[in-house]
Amino acid sequence: MTTSEPILSIRDLVVSYGAIKALHGISMDVYEGEIVCVIGANGAGKSTLLNSVMGAVPVEKGEILFEGKPLVRRSYKVVASGICLVPEGRKIFGPLTVSENLMVGAFLRKDKERIQEDLEWVYTLFPRLKERKDQPGATLSGGEQQMLSIARSLMSSPRVLLLDEPSLGLAPILIKEIFDELKLINERGVTIVLVEQNARQALMLSHRGYVMQTGRVIIQGPSAELLSDPRVKMAYLGKLKA
């Protein structure tokens, strides 16, 4: 599953919003083929971490390496290099059809044959999107919009897929469906970094996990170990005792 060198490496990352520090020297490694989850309470800095990788927020200190080389801090170049973000809140283009949204995801690509192959793959992965390919994105249900957001990112042909709270606002049956599809995406060779409020689901899906609190990593390790860690159970898995 892993190789000796991480595909994505974050080193001593510091990010501030004015006088407020959002990240206090975060370090993290992601190896090719992994699913890595990042859990923590609201305000822990999880979304800031992903947005820093994407070049969407300025970095005060530290570095982000992709395949051992510094990652250019421009979002379109990050996507071109092989990293794409499924943002919190889906952020699809409501007036555009499903198929038009998907093609927006491939806008940096020139390999037309592979684009068509990937389009057929995402339609196989998310059959409801194929059924609704001519509908405006705004007419889809919340779960379908989340599928579209993931599929649009996959159309960029990423090697690393970042996901920010994909289960947010979804019914349990749809959450299970989304997580099943993430497993299939990973099995196809896409490395995944998952920021997720549903800590149990995230740890059950992932190989390794990081727990963040107020801009710092406080616990890390194999997901199976984190699931049984009393600190994680008490704070994030509903095992708090009276």
Rank of each mutant, 00 (worst) to 15 (best):
E5H: 09
I7P: 01
I7M: 10
A19Q: 05
L23F: 03
G33S: 07
V36D: 04
V36H: 11
G45E: 07
T48V: 13
L50R: 09
A56M: 15
A56C: 05
K61H: 13
E67G: 04
R74P: 00
R74G: 02
S81W: 02
S81E: 14
G82L: 10
P87H: 01
K91F: 10
N101T: 09
M103A: 07
D111Q: 05
K112Y: 08
W121L: 12
V122L: 06
T124E: 15
P127F: 10
D134N: 14
P136G: 08
T139V: 11
S141W: 11
G142K: 09
Q146N: 03
S149V: 01
A151I: 06
P158A: 08
D164G: 11
E165F: 02
A171S: 14
P172E: 12
I175A: 03
I175W: 02
D180N: 15
K183A: 10
R188Y: 11
G189P: 10
T191L: 12
L194Q: 10
E196V: 03
A202S: 05
R208K: 14
V211D: 01
Q213K: 14
T214I: 11
I219C: 02
S223P: 11
E225C: 01
P230N: 12
K233P: 00
M234V: 12
A235F: 06
A235P: 07
Y236N: 02
G238R: 13
A242C: 00
